[in-house]
């Protein structure tokens, strides 16, 4: 194997064979080493949140990765390949330009399936909403679908004041017996206030940036209406196929308290579907 091993000869066969072998070993070793090195590096820099989201996004079912422009009626079929980061999506930029020039009109779909959508809020795909306050902060709350699912505020673990939060990284944890998940933060920022019982929002954030890019990935109310209906149907499909048999909808309005309609053993799945945790 090596020149100093007894019986080794510098024959052509040996050189070719061992040359290929050592190349393979070195490539395997280097690739493995590189991924260890990269993961160590990303562990030190604050990329964990970013990578965790990328990885989770990758594992989401295609139905959960539908492009926002379907809800606005801009396109018929499209699955997001940009981790819901519309700022990096060329198709999104293109459609927005068309819209600005008036060639595409953003029309609000017929109904929102009975979910309320507020015109002064922006919506994150992880079912939180965000409202920009005059003082430069934003408040973040659960949207209508999420708040019908999570009715008990005491099950929510809110972050402490001054905590840094990152877009698409866990903001709030939900703990229910035998099921838990996290709710994703809509934008980067720092917690400045935590909402109390009865408050319409959960936390108040000071955004890291107030530029349009920081909010480009959030759904506008007109998109959110169709999206919420889509999400509700998706949740229903998922629950129905598991033999759970939630008998809501069929064109009717969703139950006031969705929470009580979801059986205990389907909670985990329901939370995962809604809050985008694969």
């Amino acid at each position: 194997m090596f020149p100093w091993v007894y019986g080794f000869t510098w024959s052509t066969g040996n050189l070719i064979f061992l040359g290929i072998f050592f190349t393979v070993v070195i490539v395997i070793g280097l690739t493995l080493g590189l991924s260890v090195l990269r993961s160590l590096r990303s562990a030190q820099s604050n990329e964990i949140a970013h990578i965790r989201w990328k990885s989770e996004f990758h594992d989401l079912p295609a139905a959960a990765r539908t492009c926002r422009h379907i809800f606005a009626g801009d396109t018929r079929e499209r699955t997001c390949a940009h981790d819901f980061d519309c700022g990096t999506c060329t198709a999104h930029r293109h459609i927005e330009e068309l819209r600005r020039s008036g060639r595409i009109v953003l029309h609000r779909p017929a109904g929102s399936g009975g979910f309320s959508v507020s015109s002064e809020r922006l919506y994150h795909r992880g079912h939180t909403w965000l409202r920009r306050e005059p003082d430069g902060t934003v408040v973040v709350g659960l949207d209508d679908l999420a708040s019908r699912l999570v009715t008990d505020r005491s099950t929510l673990g809110l972050p402490p004041v001054h905590a840094a939060v990152f877009r698409n990284a866990p903001l709030v944890t939900i703990r229910r017996a035998s099921a838990g998940t996290r709710i994703l933060a809509p934008i980067d920022g720092e917690i400045v206030e935590v909402g109390g019982e009865g408050c319409e929002w959960l936390v108040r954030l000071r955004p890291r940036s107030l530029g349009t890019d920081a909010f480009a990935h959030l759904l506008r109310p007109a998109e959110a209406a169709g999206w919420l209906q889509y999400e509700f149907e998706r949740l229903q499909r998922s629950l129905a196929s598991g033999g759970v048999g939630v008998t809501m909808a069929d064109g009717g309005l969703p139950m006031q308290e969705l929470a009580s309609a979801v059986p205990v053993d389907a909670w985990d799945r329901a939370l995962g579907e809604v809050f985008l945790e694969p």
């Binding site: 490539v27 395997i28 690739t31 493995l32 590189l34 991924s35 260890v36 990269r38 993961s39 990303s42 562990a43 964990i48 990578i51 965790r52 990328k54 990885s55």
Partner: peptide
């Protein structure tokens, strides 16, 4: 576990080599 996740992520990116 964050380190497992990171390693998986970085390894998966180089999967084409393997």
């Amino acid at each position: 576990n964050a380190s497992m996740l990171l390693f998986e992520f970085q390894l998966h990116k180089l999967m084409v080599v393997f």
